[in-house]
Design a protein around this nucleic acid. Structure first.
Length: 647
RNA sequence: GCCUUUGUAGCUCAGGGGUAGAGCACUUCCUUGGUAAGGAAGAGGUCCCGGGUUCAAUUCCCGGCAAAGGCUCCA
């Protein structure tokens, strides 16, 4: 007999060789029907595999992330079987589950798959799934595995086998399809009831640009058609928040082929919003002891040779700008750091001058590959909220904490709660690719970890992700469709101070450290993109383009509306008037779609007692309010409290 | 850059080898209204650009440009 401990702490006894499925049946038939896999002593395994002995056991269903992953992993095998049936001779790469569904990388030879082929694949998958094929696990020797895939001619699987040891290799077979796989899998294919191939994409084998590009098919499955339908609706909803769509609808920005890809044009409403955001951040920076500087958009070749950018990025960036003067070359600035270093070096600095915090909203230009461009989130010309802090080694930790505070202040002012913080440190083994002394790295890495902890941040530590010149802390945020973007980064840089031979007092810089760019935001454009998606275009009041719109009931009240409008403008409230010859219902609808913060309705009644009737974009109607002197919609709050940027 | 898809009115999109289509927006007129679309008429196009096939190309083919989804998830 074996003892099985369940998540609630209860212990049940079973015969030797009992499976997780037996345990499930013992609890209830209903549960057994929903079990996808099981976590045995913390390891996810097939539900119908015999338990190893006494163990802790959690039965995994659709509600567990691991259960979902099992389902989707098995679905990938099912899709592979369908593809093999439809396109004989296909070679297979890898097919893992992902956040929303799964993919399989395949090599179709000369054939191509387009979205016109999806329906056939989905149908084949459903057909196979309905056969209730069992996933059979089999341990195989390395020699047998190699023999199998050699005969099949699947070079990708053979390559994967190279990295595996004899004795740890398993095959899974369902129906006519056998795959090299560590598992686990769902009991049989009947769990898969709804299938949807989402998209096709090229993907380099093992993520390496130099290797062959395979065809990647993304798909998702559910055990109920209804769940698939709901998922598709959810996707549609997310698309409505897409900043590219909202940016167009709300007249914030546009792109022009004639100007060039990746070069956003800010329309009046967007430019004003951007300006308000900058002002807010400048104020916050100044309070934190930063001084603003300004530097030109180009710099001579010599500047970038000193900084190392010429050597590292020269070829891959915009080509240099030449002048009538023979041999004279300038570069569009890809970053502000070199200029800031020169500002630091412009006169002798004492240790008493430190920390010196130079800030600039500097626009930089980078040649991003055409396929990388994405709305405002990845562009070729963008403005950085950039700052460089020059400090002594003993100040690094404190400065780091202050920068974190500044980033958090900005994020909180915009109600961001869900962001990830990643600490990027050196590779644990290979230290040769980093510059700077062991001692300084150690100190800086420690400083970052401690600063993050002291600020209460939940962080993920990634080894080997540090820049060659120093460790960093990155703020990552997700967009409407779940894609991750880096929003802010704080880095320590030993490279630039050394290259620019920055010094203070009598001591040269390198051993003492140069702390580098706390970019509260890496790119203002990307930040605004994320704000748009986060708020679905309903910006906080202080940021929103249209704070109030006055809706006269009919032409007769347009004059009165203008009077009220002038009063509001006087109070610094951004106000427009809908003078169109339309019914009030129509005006409300349009104001709603335009996401105006407040709607002020003015008709006969209001005109008579000098009020306006207030509705907000939350469709809350606050009743009549008196417009003059104070904002009518908030009798308790003064305009200072809501219209002004947060402090 | 590479793979797949797309490019038609200001916007969203239908169409198709031979007069270019709809809805919304726009202009004008009627209507003067009370909390998410009042009615009518009108105007609006180099069908992304270049080349090829054809009597004829916006449509088919090739090339460019731009946009979308990927190329980070490691059996």
């Amino acid at each position: 007999m074996i003892k099985v401990t369940l998540p609630d702490g209860s212990v049940r006894e079973f015969e030797q060789g009992a499976t997780a499925m037996d345990v499930a049946r013992n609890i209830s038939e209903g549960l057994a029907r929903n079990v996808l896999s099981a976590k045995v002593n913390g390891e996810v395994r097939d539900a119908n595999r015999p338990l190893p002995g006494d163990c802790t056991l959690a039965l995994l269903t659709w509600n567990d992330p691991d259960g979902k992953a099992t389902m989707w992993h098995s679905s990938a095998h099912l899709m592979a079987e369908a593809i093999e049936a439809l396109y004989p001779g296909t070679k297979f790469g890898i097919g893992p589950p992902i956040e929303n569904g799964f993919y399989y990388d395949i090599d179709l030879g000369d054939k191509t798959i387009g979205d016109g082929d999806f329906a056939a694949i989905e149908a084949k998958m459903k057909e196979l799934a309905s056969k209730k094929l069992v996933f059979e696990r089999k341990e195989v020797s390395k020699a047998d595995a190699i023999a199998y895939f050699t005969e099949k001619g699947d070079e990708y699987k053979l390559e994967l086998l190279e990295g595996l040891n004899d004795g740890e290799i398993t095959f899974y077979t369902q129906g006519n399809f056998t795959d090299l796989c560590r598992g686990p899998h769902i009991p049989d294919t009947s769990f898969i009831k709804a299938t949807k191939v989402m998209s096709v994409a090229g993907a380099y084998w093992r993520g390496d640009e130099k290797r062959k590009q395979l065809t990647r098919l993304y798909a998702i499955t559910f055990s109920k058609q209804k769940e698939l339908d709901e998922y598709l609706v959810l996707l549609e909803e997310a698309k409505k928040r897409d900043h590219r769509k909202l940016g167009k609808e709300l007249d914030l920005f546009t792109f022009s082929e004639r100007v060039g890809a990746g070069l956003p044009l800010w329309l009046p409403k967007g430019a004003a919003l951007r300006e308000r955001l900058i002002n807010f951040m400048k104020t916050a920076q100044e309070k934190a002891g930063y001084v603003q500087v300004a530097t030109p958009h180009i710099g001579s070749k010599a500047l970038y040779e000193t900084s190392g950018h010429w050597e590292k990025y020269g070829k891959d960036s915009f080509q240099p700008i030449s002048t009538p003067q023979e041999g004279e070359l300038f570069m569009l600035k890809p970053m502000n750091c070199p200029h800031h270093c020169e500002i630091f070096a412009s006169r002798p600095r004492s240790y008493k001058d430190l920390p010196l915090r130079l800030a600039e909203f500097g626009t930089v230009y980078r040649y991003e590959q055409s396929g990388e461009l994405h709305g405002l989130a990845r562009v070729r010309g963008f403005t950085q909220d950039d700052a460089h802090l020059f400090c002594r080694p003993d100040q690094v930790k404190e400065e780091f904490m202050k920068v974190i505070d500044l980033v958090l202040l900005v994020l909180r002012a915009l109600n961001f709660e869900n962001f990830e913080v990643q600490v990027s440190l050196r590779d644990k083994e290979d230290r040769s690719k980093y510059i700077g002394s062991e001692e300084n790295w150690e100190k800086a890495e420690q400083a970052i970890i401690e600063a993050a902890a002291a600020s209460g941040l939940k962080t993920v530590v990634e080894y080997g992700e540090a820049a060659f010149y120093g460790p960093k802390l990155d703020f990552m945020i997700k967009d409407a469709l779940g894609r991750r973007w880096q929003l802010g980064t704080i880095q320590v840089d030993y490279n630039l101070p050394e290259r620019f031979e920055l010094e203070y007092g009598q001591r040269q810089w390198p051993p003492p450290s140069g702390d580098d760019p706390p970019r509260a935001l890496r790119s203002l454009e990307r930040f605004i993109a994320v704000i748009i998606e986060h708020t679905a275009g309903r910006f906080p009041l202080w940021l929103t383009p249209e704070q109030a719109i006055i809706l006269p009931i009919s032409d007769k009240f347009v004059e009165a509306a203008k009077t009220v409008g002038a009063q509001l403008e006087q109070l610094g409230i951004r106000t427009t008037i809908d003078e169109r010859n339309e019914k009030i219902g129509r005006k409300i609808r349009d104001a709603e779609l335009a996401k105006s913060a407040f709607m002020l309705i003015l008709g006969e009644k209001e005109q008579a007692d000098g009020t306006v009737s207030v509705g907000s974009r939350a469709r809350a109607i606050s009743g009549p309010c008196r417009p003059p002197r104070s904002p009518p919609w908030s009798r308790s709050a003064s305009p200072d409290n809501w219209a002004r940027q947060p402090a």
